[in-house]
Design a protein around this nucleic acid. Structure first.
Length: 312
DNA sequence: CGTCTTTGACCCGCGC
DNA sequence: GCGCGGGTCAAAGACG
């Protein structure tokens, strides 16, 4: 299983998915991620939460990632990793729980522990690289401890022509790497708000180039920037191909995000304001723009902790 | 001039 | 121990 696949199916992603994310997640996945296509129908959110936690998890899994019940291999691997974790608490409840590091090496490699790593690195740079050796040893012990405190991560796939899907926050790109076995690079972004170390990775699926895989890590400790620049509210868009009429997204919030026959549907709408950066507006016809201001406010009221983490 | 992207170098963990 | 791959840094450049 590739790292990418591991990421996508990481139980942690599911456990930390925000409600709104869940509601807007596409119901299909690229072939490499499970069932090679579409889930017959979307799962009404209510169904997910009316069921037992286990069933909710099951439903969510299917809903968000398009894992068919027959994809037992993937599903089981998820359960094995963090079987003690209560999914519904994280989805519906307060601040998503930080889960301990799994035994998966690739999981541990993900940048959850980066804060320590980066900090140490900066110190090294500042002090001069000669001290690299001595600092290394000290850092290792420290790092192991930090490993356990990973930020919650959310990963989802979006059918979009643009790579960087706007979510209302301002991001600064700090890196780009070629992805193994993929012609598409992976971009690394960091929230530009001070003291907010939320990161996200954006990459395009090699199997289905129309699908953008976005992974958020950490929680914003601040509300959405109010003085956002730019004009487009396009933000993260899901193709209508992914959406099923009658899905919870459509039903529960009467969102016009879903446009039957249209090319796009708004998703992950944290209260979109388009940052003017990036290539989002490169193809203005690629997506239909939305600004469902009320939705965000409503959701924020209902699930405040999902949208941003208050400073202690 | 401030903000953001680009990009090569670097660090680190892991598997062999 | 070595090489690989993922993730990050930071200087330089682009842009409004």
């Amino acid at each position: 299983m590739s790292n990418e696949t591991k990421d996508l199916y990481s139980y942690q992603y599911l456990t930390s998915l925000s409600l709104y994310e869940l509601m807007n997640l596409p119901t299909s996945t690229p072939s490499s991620y499970g069932n090679n296509g579409f889930v017959p129908s979307s799962y009404p959110l209510a169904d997910c939460f009316q069921s037992s936690p286990g069933a909710a998890y099951d439903s969510l899994l299917h809903t968000t990632l398009g894992v068919s019940p027959s994809s037992s291999e993937v599903f089981n691997s998820l359960v094995d990793q963090e079987s003690k974790h209560d999914v519904t608490n994280d989805v519906i409840g307060e601040t998503p729980t930080r889960v301990s590091a799994s035994s998966s090496s690739s999981e541990a490699d993900l940048p959850g522990e980066d804060s320590g790593k980066s900090q140490r690195k900066r110190e090294l740079v500042g002090d001069g690289r000669e001290e690299n050796q001595s600092s290394k040893k000290v850092g290792k012990t420290k790092k192991k401890e930090e490993k356990k405190q990973r930020e919650p991560r959310v990963s989802f796939m979006t059918k979009s022509e643009v790579d960087h899907l706007e979510d209302g926050y301002r991001w600064r790109k700090y890196g780009q790497k070629a992805v193994k076995n993929s012609i598409y690079p992976r971009s690394y972004y960091r929230c530009t708000t001070q003291r907010c170390n939320v990161k996200k990775r954006v990459e395009r699926s090699f199997q289905d180039p129309t699908v953008v895989i976005t992974t958020y890590e950490g929680q914003h400790n601040h509300p959405l920037p109010t003085n956002l620049r730019g004009s487009s509210a396009a933000a993260a868009m899901y193709s209508a191909d992914f959406m099923t009429p009658g899905s919870f997204t459509h039903e529960m919030f009467r969102s016009s995000a879903y446009t039957s026959g249209g090319s796009a549907a708004a998703a992950l709408d944290y209260g979109y304001e388009q940052s003017s950066y990036g290539s989002v507006n490169a193809n203005p016809n690629a997506h239909q723009e939305y600004r469902q201001g009320g939705e965000y406010e409503l959701l924020k009221e209902i699930f405040p902790s999902i949208f941003f983490k208050q400073e202690p």
